[in-house]
Amino acid sequence: MTATATPARRLLRNPAGAFGLALTVLLVGAGLLAPLAAPHDPAAVGFDRLYAPPSWASPLGTDELGRDQLSRILYGLRASVLIGVAAVLMAAAVAVPLGLAAGYYRRVVDPVVSRLNDAVMAFPFLVLAVGLAAILGPSPVNAAVAIGVSQVPNILRVMRGEALRLSGEQFVDAAVAGGAGDAAVLFRHILPNAANALLVQVTVGIPAAIIAEAMLSFLGLGVQPPTPSLGVMLSSAQSTFAQAPWLAVFPGVALVLLTLGFNLLGDGLRDALDPKGAQR
């Protein structure tokens, strides 16, 4: 029997997973540290340098108001990460208890939760965001709520499935036979065993939420200009395609790298946490 490596070590040993982790840490870090890392004030307007192509002073060029694009991208990453992570964590806070309860109390809770879940899924996140914006007006918070709500069904489905699977395991029967109450069974025996699946689902949910945020901001339903956001930047770049293509390229590249990092990390985690991989 060979020694079994820990999941963390297996993740780092997988080149794609390690690269994903590095990319995620780098871009999330750059975003969170944007106030320190940005070379310029993202709001500083300069009419002497409108649409400046990349140069030493502004490595990624400047926009229609002469603002430094690199600095705006860093702040944009910050907004993307914060909204994306907040939306997914909100979703998890709702979906985890509901999903566990639905999978465990199959007769009473499951039918109710499952129908509600179906109803939520019937609203694509953009439609939900459109509805919220129509009622409450467009704002980053409303965008985050819409994204969060649309992430609930995915996490809920995974947690319900895990609770359903685990409640059929004999160790749950053994715990019940040993006098464990419902709370002990759910939180001590089922949740820890469902934690891996939750972690993976959250890790793949975040890039989806980040893309969703960018999409909403692009449409004008999320972060509002002049606050820097990757979606807003791409939206305004649309009209100046021909003269300043770098304004459409770089924010998109930043977005792709950020989501790619999370997706690679998610895949790496999935493999590293797979019990079948543990024996290898």
Partner: peptide, 15 residues
């Protein structure tokens, strides 16, 4: 108390 058939599944892998 009960002893189950499959020892692989009757012990909580996280404890």
């Amino acid at each position: 108390q009960m002893v189950f058939q499959d020892p692989a599944s009757s012990l909580n892998p996280r404890m």
